[in-house]
Design a protein around this nucleic acid. Sequence first.
DNA 1: GCAATAGTGTCTCTCAGACAATATTGG
DNA 2: CCAATATTGTCTGAGAGACACTATTGC
Lengths: 237, 237
Amino acid sequence: MNEKSFLAAYNRADYTSPLLSVDAVLFTYHDGLIKVLLVHRSSHPDKGKWALPGGFVDEALDRNLDDTIHRKLQEKTGVGTAYLDQLGSFGGSKRDKRGWSVTVVYTAMVAHQACASLVDTVDDVRWVALEELDSLKLAFDHAQILAAARQRLRQKALYSIIPAYTLNERFTLPELQAVHEVILEKPLQKKSFRRRIELAELLIDTGEKQSEGGRPASLYRLKPDASTYTFVRNLES
Amino acid sequence: MNEKSFLAAYNRADYTSPLLSVDAVLFTYHDGLIKVLLVHRSSHPDKGKWALPGGFVDEALDRNLDDTIHRKLQEKTGVGTAYLDQLGSFGGSKRDKRGWSVTVVYTAMVAHQACASLVDTVDDVRWVALEELDSLKLAFDHAQILAAARQRLRQKALYSIIPAYTLNERFTLPELQAVHEVILEKPLQKKSFRRRIELAELLIDTGEKQSEGGRPASLYRLKPDASTYTFVRNLES
DNA sequence: GCAATAGTGTCTCTCAGACAATATTGG
DNA sequence: CCAATATTGTCTGAGAGACACTATTGC
């Protein structure tokens, strides 16, 4: 039998495959806290609990998994995400009551301001501070997924500038340092922090300043390839 | 409607879900080269091409994705893998001719010796040196997946001792250094390499020696938690 | 002894940690 | 000037790179 006739005879419905979904842990920084976007489930299963934004592949619309998660996040936030990267896949027979299921999970980051307008107007989507997560009922295995995402975020804060994507496009160095400090849950040395970023040449000085009650801070913008840079030496963890 | 009646009414066959497979890039070190295990496809689609070892979830046997890949690798090599970790998932409408599909890919490592007996006796499974990959016809998007796995392996060589899992349980420091050098495609300083590993206390000295034509080298064994250790400072890339 | 391989001594260099000092704004 | 915040100077220490040196084996 050649491949053509094999494919003609092949019918996907003859094989059961685990249920596949795509979810994201979308991080932002607001009011001195790292927050994640959660969606209130209005349908079964796990109705009434909070879940990560996500959904199913639309075979007509999506060419690949990145398309799926982009589409889903756009629906919930109204904007494209500044940063997106795959965290991993979680699969098993017990995680979803509908049966054996797999979810491909992304971590994403966006400026709080960018999607404030949409998120604030709907009541089934909201930003939840990491500290507040323990007090919420989470759907499926999303508590476990969030724990893995936090771990990944922490690593990124140690060896990259990626947490900057939780800020507005233009941001100050003290703001960026504050983000890293919140993620790492420890204070950092101003001098060390600035020095490593300056040396890596990851930022563009916009020339503008932003005043915060004292000396105004310079506003920077990320260089396009800043997300791919890794420091050879990590911050102490 | 409550959840119970929702689940009773729910029928997975009513929804089409992408085809889901689980594959692995299994690395080993042999004859001064890093090699990966490939399987010759005997059935459609992509019959006759070489593919990563893997397969489909068995909903009866597998509790989770790790179970699936463990089972598949055990079938092909006859042994459990020394190291296993998820690389990522690759999904899209074009990668498999049967339709929209997703594969969850793991990277794994095993000692060449451990599975030599089985692999050498079958002719549809073989070790392929990384350098030789370009000359083989690879199934699906497996060339792209292998590129991502090589990239990941390279990173691990820079910040961890994980490449040690491609060696026998007991190995010498010059052997380990050779593995890292092959992966990074550059020579390393003996002194630096030994110093960082000694400082990290990742190895147990077995007290035994292994002779290689000159002064015999000490044989070491990995400490149980060696896979979770990351150096704060990377090797230069 | 010699060749071959394993392992050490020690200097330099880079970059993070610490923390004090200086700069620039608004009142 | 003072309070508040941003930014810099500079010393210390950890650990990688370089490379010459010593050690232990078989012949």
